[in-house]
């Protein structure tokens, strides 16, 4: 049995959007504690981890199930949510469907086909990072947009206590500098200077579900995967992205 009620369908939509930007399909592992999912994108460059504790739901009841869904189909259904809709997710074990129900001015039901997506048993690897930056999503996404003007990859740097988003193209360059006392920065826990370069489109996709005032936790080392964490609608989203390395 699995049944979960979410008070704001629109908020849950962000979680599905975040996953569907990077993944084609996902396996939600549900149990009495909540929902979790871990998956790598098809090119094995990015990892997505979603944790939604049962407390994030208005009502929640589940025993152990693996619920595999096509994210494109799920996303299209979630796009139909209205602003004040409640969302009910329930597993129909007989028909092998996930019922996605919007409750608002009317009750609208979708039955989403289940796929045999095996649960990945992936863990977010426990990497030790020298630097941890808490930054408002809005200014960080703006820095990525600036970088996007000059190249398709971007360098994230910690240099002399500053967090720098830097891009260099054949002709042009862009740079955003966040000092520790900047109003964009919540906190910086700096261990050492560091520098890693990343594909910009992945970074954009990973930060798309965040509202501009949401707080991103960015973990950064040198030529290491970047880890970006934030919360949406009581769900914890964690992304890992492999760097581009000089060859």
């Amino acid at each position: 049995m699995f049944r979960a009620v979410i008070s704001e369908a629109k908020e849950f939509k962000k979680v599905i959007d975040a996953a569907s930007n990077l993944l084609d399909e996902i396996c939600f592992e549900v149990n009495e504690e909540g929902i979790k999912a871990r998956a790598m994108d098809p090119s094995h460059v990015a990892l997505v981890s979603i944790d939604i504790p049962k407390e994030a739901f208005e009502e929640y009841e589940a025993d152990v199930h693996d619920i595999g869904v096509d994210l494109e189909a799920f996303k299209k259904i979630m796009n139909r949510a209205k602003a004040k809709d409640k969302l009910i997710l329930e597993l129909d074990e007989e028909k092998n469907k996930l019922n996605v129900i919007f409750k608002g001015a009317a009750t609208r039901k979708f039955a989403l086909a289940l796929y045999d997506v095996s649960s990945s048993n992936l863990q977010v690897p426990d990497i030790e990072y020298p630097n941890e930056i808490l930054i408002k999503a809005g200014p960080f996404v703006d820095a990525l947009k600036d970088a996007d003007l000059v190249n398709d990859h971007v360098t994230l740097k910690v240099e002399d206590g500053k967090f720098i988003v830097y891009a260099k193209g054949d002709l042009n360059e862009s740079e955003t500098i966040f000092e520790e006392d900047s109003e964009s920065i919540i906190s910086m826990n700096i261990g050492e200077n560091a520098k890693s370069t990343f594909n910009l489109e992945y970074l954009r996709d990973m930060t798309k579900a965040a509202s501009s005032s949401d707080i991103l936790k960015i973990y950064l080392g040198t030529d290491m995967p970047v880890k970006i964490e934030y919360d949406v609608a009581g769900a914890n989203l964690t992304f890992l992205l492999a760097p581009r390395i000089e060859s």
């Binding site: 094995h44 990015a46 990497i127 370069t197 290491m224 760097p243 581009r244 060859s247």
Partner: peptide
């Protein structure tokens, strides 16, 4: 020139 590496390169 930099090259995209995979996550698995870090988790061996």
């Amino acid at each position: 020139k930099n090259k995209q590496v995979k996550l698995s390169d870090f988790f061996r």
